[in-house]
């Protein structure tokens, strides 16, 4: 009797236990290395006592202190606003131009070498140039971001539009699908994997440009604040700024990943189907 009851209890517990251990393993996968790294940092800074290497605890405490509501409103949010504004504008322009160029072989042939050259120019050199043009203001910072992030988006859109399946083009012609519906249902959707790939590259360039345009030519914003901390040897503050930029990059990448998963749901499905899953 007691043996039987132990058996059933075991049987009931076993799947639960293995589930729990799976979750524990996942958590370990997720957290072990970050914890080890933070620990190692702590140890290193405690042992060496280097002035430029504050402990993680110090950085965390400074982070909370430095990036309070006031600085958030004055420096961080305007920077993020410009970043998103510039990136959006660059994406719209890049996709629009890319569609036009992708559809016209002749125009493409004429402009391709020029575009290839513009794409090859490292975008940061645009910062001094546009400062010259426009002085130091919001328009200039936006222009820097737009003119840097537009190229990968533009060129990838061209590739994507060129790669639209000819059978789908014929299908649309047969069924009289044209005009706006043709553009949105056929061309843009079909090019969306390349457009998203271009936008991902454009986003990381936009972040770089947001930061350095403020480091190089500004008296406010995230980049400016961080470089000021470094200049005044406010080391834990500087580290907290680096941490904030890191979190910003990570957060935007996560958001973009979510958007990408939505937009390219069909594309991932097609690929999985082709793999035979």
């Amino acid at each position: 009797m007691s043996a039987a009851s132990t058996d059933t209890r075991d049987a009931a517990r076993r799947p639960g236990a293995s589930g729990a251990s799976r979750i524990a393993l996942r958590a370990l996968h997720l957290l072990l290395l970050p914890l080890v790294l933070i620990g190692a940092w702590w140890l290193a800074s405690a042992v060496t006592g280097l002035y430029y290497l504050p402990t993680p605890g110090e950085i965390a405490a400074t982070f909370v202190e430095v990036w309070g509501a006031e600085r958030l409103a004055a420096d961080v949010l305007p920077s993020i606003g410009r970043l998103i504004g510039g990136f959006t504008l660059g994406s719209v322009l890049g996709v629009a131009l890319g569609v036009v160029l992708g559809l016209s072989a002749r125009l493409r042939a004429v402009l391709e070498p020029v575009l290839e050259f513009f794409r090859a120019i490292p975008p940061p050199v645009l910062v001094p140039l546009l400062m010259l043009f426009m002085g130091v203001n919001t328009t200039m910072k936006l222009a820097v971001i737009v003119s840097g992030c537009i190229w990968p988006i533009l060129l990838n859109t061209i590739e994507g539009v060129r790669a639209v399946d000819p059978v789908l083009i014929d299908t649309c012609r047969c069924y009289g699908v044209r005009g706006r519906r043709w553009l949105t249902t056929l061309v843009l959707r079909s090019a969306s994997p390349q457009i998203m790939a271009g936008m991902r590259q454009g986003l990381s360039i936009a972040i770089i440009l947001m930061v350095i345009s403020e480091m190089f030519a500004s008296s406010s914003g995230l980049g400016y604040t961080i470089i000021q901390f470094q200049r005044s040897f406010a080391i834990p503050e500087m580290w907290s700024g680096i941490l904030l930029l890191g979190l910003l990059g990570f957060g935007l990448s996560v958001l973009f990943g979510l958007a990408e998963r939505r937009v390219l749901y069909w594309y991932n499905g097609v690929r999985a189907a082709a793999r035979g899953e």
């Binding site: 059978v167 789908l168 014929d170 012609r173 047969c174 069924y175 009289g176 959707r189 499905g269």
Partner: peptide, 22 residues
């Protein structure tokens, strides 16, 4: 002279003539 309005076509490449995003 162009695709006539009351004609429909079924292509050989079925996989490619359907819109995978619809």
């Amino acid at each position: 002279t162009g695709p006539p309005p009351d004609m429909a076509v079924v292509f050989q490449e079925y996989g490619r003539s359907l819109f995978p995003w619809l």
